[in-house]
Design a binder for these strands. Structure first.
Lengths: 223, 223
DNA sequence: GCCAAACTGTATCGCTTGATAGCATTTTAC
DNA sequence: GTAAAATGCTATCAAGCGATACAGTTTGGC
């Protein structure tokens, strides 16, 4: 082991060259794991797609499993980057006024961000595939995704649904699970939904149609 | 090729011995493919689980891919067996009286059956895994599942939602997609939801809590 | 310039996979 | 009973897999 272990290489001040390669590998791995799952993706295919050779994967991530875990962490980071601002905004609104109407407005903000993450972006396809496979058959990345993405997401949505009124705490939790899962229509089940609707993507006006249905359901929470 | 091609062996009048082996293989394959996807499942593991030897898979199904397609057809058949009666009942109700209230009652019947299929049974875990993997990344079985399960299911639910009132045809379709997808909370995403709720299954009283939320949303369709 | 560390490339190992060849055994028809 | 078809098993192949030994090349600090 004359060279570094290659694993925890973050704060290296110099030698910036490899960061690009590392990023390309991660991008290719996200797409490959998302499409085929852990066993379905091959290291050769990922290396090829990233334009590097096979030992580079070991060099940068220690191996296939390390690369897989790095993908999970990358997903968490991208989720955070997109959700932090809307969630802070929603929390600020609720601190100012805890009325049901405020809760519904806050819910719409959070759900718009959530739906954007799961539905709108093209990278979302890989994202959804990765998360869903890991969730359906818990593996090494399950804990990361559950604790960093799913649990806090359901928590905050359930809390807001409770504030919106009309439901007990338990029913609000259940409602949060069901509402968030309904987004999988355009997440994991996107190919089916697109084919059914005759769409080829979920861009601007179409995204608004999805959001329109979600917002109507949020409004109905007050009844 | 001194023996038969082994593929289309359906109407053979005699030689009933192998049917049991065939069924065991199919059962093991459903579980294996559902858990790990096409590449994740190995033929050895399936043969082992079914208590047969490796060449038996080729003998009965022609190979791994043939076995995979046979699984898709088996799923369609089980889906049909469970859904035919409730759908006929719902249609009969709607032929008698096309009132919004009737449509909501019919929807509850259909959704109870749908939820039972996706949520309640233990085999549903493999079922959900298989369908969802195939849907997320369309493969050879996509057409079968789409045309025989997804499309007719969304169609009938969307039709009933339209009758329930308050929504345009397009919005009703969208609502059908979102409502059916919300069941994935206890289908594909079951491990997450169970962990979040602290449940270990979705049996009687818990199943009713899920249905309670779904039925409340169906009732709200009338507003 | 020069050395060490960071990066890249070639070649190959050991293993598992799906498939199948070839033979033994069981079942059915007559 | 007996022949033929159906079914089951052992052994093995070729291909693809993840991993890595090892050497070469680039980069940055001094």
């Amino acid at each position: 082991m004359s060279r570094s272990e290659g694993q925890a290489r973050e704060a290296a001040s110099g030698y910036r060259k490899g960061e690009a390669a590392r990023a390309r590998i991660l991008e290719a791995a996200l797409a490959a794991f998302g499409a085929g799952g852990f066993k379905g993706a091959t290291t050769r295919q990922i290396a090829d797609e990233a334009g590097v050779n096979l030992p580079a994967l070991k060099y940068y991530f220690g191996g296939k499993e390390g690369l897989y875990l790095a993908c999970a962490e990358e997903i968490v980071e991208r989720y955070r980057a997109r959700m932090v601002a809307p969630i802070l905004q929603a929390q600020a609104m609720l601190e100012a006024r805890e009325a049901p109407e405020t809760a519904r407005q806050a819910l719409k903000i959070v759900f718009r961000a959530l739906a954007g993450q799961m539905v709108e972006t093209r990278e979302a396809e890989a994202w959804a595939g990765f998360v869903l496979r890991e969730i359906a058959e818990p593996g090494p990345a399950f804990a990361i995704l559950y604790e960093q993405v799913w649990q806090p997401g359901v928590n905050i949505v359930g809390y807001m649904i409770g504030l919106a009124g009309g439901l007990s705490a338990g029913a609000a939790q259940m409602e949060a699970l069901l509402m968030i899962s309904s987004l999988s229509a355009f997440g994991a089940a996107r190919p089916v939904s697109l084919k059914y609707l005759g769409w080829d993507d979920v861009s601007g006006e179409r995204f608004e149609r999805v959001m329109g249905n979600l917002e109507r359901r949020i409004d109905e929470l007050g009844s």
